[in-house]
């Protein structure tokens, strides 16, 4: 890769940036832990999609109609 190319300079920017981080390392760790908790723990175990669990694919409208208009 040419050292003067845009892609190399972009790569270099991120590489050097991440290498020289100080407090940024701790922030990234917190962000990753937070993303794990949100997307893995909370989403999978506590926040399933209610409609996809209670209605067949393509039948969501019917399910919601039954819920809202059930005589």
């Amino acid at each position: 890769m040419q050292h003067r190319s845009f892609f190399y300079r972009a790569y270099d920017l991120y590489r050097d940036g991440f290498r020289h981080m100080t407090i940024g390392k701790m922030l990234w760790l917190i962000v990753l832990v937070k993303l794990f908790l949100i997307f893995v723990v909370l989403k999978i175990f506590f926040f399933p999609n209610f409609l996809s669990q209670h209605a067949e694919k393509g039948e969501e409208a019917e399910y919601v109609a039954t819920q809202l208009l059930n005589p």
Binding site: K34, F47, N49
Partner: peptide, 21 residues
């Protein structure tokens, strides 16, 4: 970062009729 995503989870789980509507 991502604290707002939880609101979207809540729409899908707690407020499903609203989300669909």
């Amino acid at each position: 970062v991502a604290t707002g995503i939880i609101l979207e989870f809540e729409f899908g789980t707690n407020w499903s009729n609203y989300s669909w509507f």
